[in-house]
Amino acid sequence: MASQEAATPQSQHVRTGVEAVAETLRGARSALVACHVFPDADTLGSGLAVAIMLKRWGVPVWVSFAEPSEIPSAFVTLPGARDVVRPDDVPDDVDVVVAVDSASSERLGVLASRIAGARETVVIDHHRSNRGYGTINYVDPSADSTTMLIARVMHALNEPITEDIAHCLFAGLVTDTGSFRWCGPAAHLLAAELLATGIDAPAITRELLDTHPFGRLSMLASVLGTAQLLPNAAQGRGLVYTIVRLADISGIPEDERETVVDIVRGTGEAEVAAVIKELSPDRWSVSLRSKSSVDVAEVASALGGGGHTRSAGFETDGEVEDLIASLVRELA
């Protein structure tokens, strides 16, 4: 697997900060806005907001993600979502690549190959594990969402945040903060600014967080019914975990498995929650959450992933029993 450093053109001077991003976007002749694989509302909301702004300037722009092959149904109502293209439809020689909410180039999947041919690569992200794989890096782990950073870029450009952009930014903000349950004052201030544009915040929230297919109920019955509690894990603070197998999500969108962790994390007897999702036989994606005292980003990093202090994840191969044993060891 290529390193983050290898993805950055070594001949170019690396710059950081919001002003460098603003300057680069102003000079873009064409752009690929790359979202991470299995996109969430933060990466798509960030990417679509940037694309709307660039299109307003007349810049040719493509928004894309590598996997899955179709945009998740929960996000089709985001402004500009229907213009998202598949990686094969992105030109090989775009002027600027803008990677949003992606802690490493690997998280871009096949779109990472476009970095080598770009004049500049702009990385905008809030993950602590991001070490800067662009020629322009704006990484702020204190931000509650990447859409918060996109709003700062627009402020630096003196670009108006219109209702369609506000819709995209709010989508990332409300989801990454858990409906503002874990965030700082800056998130509330931005929310007030976005609501002032006239967006229907309750409708956006309902569409993203409270609307699910009927088949999800049987999936939850199967998955939650097999959850396990390890009260002695995490130095006695407790670990609760469950497994989402491919058979559990048969007939429903794959992104529905991502909603399981927010239910499991409510277990009162456990500080840490883990949802182990089967990607293919003996291939797993693990979502980790903690309440207040365990840094799950450190745990995920030790197992090949990364993330935030209270929300992180990793992918791995092998037997699920070995995966669980490794997780328990890292929590010790």
Rank of each mutant, 00 (worst) to 15 (best):
P213A: 00
E315F: 06
L229K: 07
E321C: 06
V244D: 11
G313D: 03
A221E: 15
L239T: 15
E298M: 10
R206V: 10
D262T: 09
E321S: 14
R310S: 01
S287T: 14
I243Q: 04
I252D: 01
G236R: 01
S301R: 13
A300Q: 09
I204Q: 07
R245N: 01
E319H: 09
A234F: 13
E278R: 11
R216A: 03
E207V: 04
T259A: 14
P253G: 05
M219V: 06
G236C: 03
A297P: 07
S280H: 14
G306Y: 09
L209W: 03
V272G: 01
A234H: 10
V294M: 00
V296Q: 08
D210C: 05
V299A: 00
L246P: 00
G268P: 11
R310L: 14
L224K: 09
S218E: 05
D317A: 15
A274D: 00
D295P: 02
L217V: 10
E256A: 04
A221G: 14
D322E: 09
L246N: 12
R237M: 03
I276F: 08
N232G: 03
T259G: 06
E207R: 12
L220M: 12
L209S: 07
R289C: 06
Q228T: 15
S311W: 06
T267V: 14
G238S: 02
D262L: 03
G304T: 07
T205N: 12
T211P: 00
M219N: 01
I263T: 10
D210P: 00
D282C: 05
S280V: 08
L209A: 07
T267N: 08
T259C: 00
V272S: 06
D262W: 01
G307K: 05
V223D: 01
M219K: 04
E269M: 10
E256T: 05
V294Y: 00
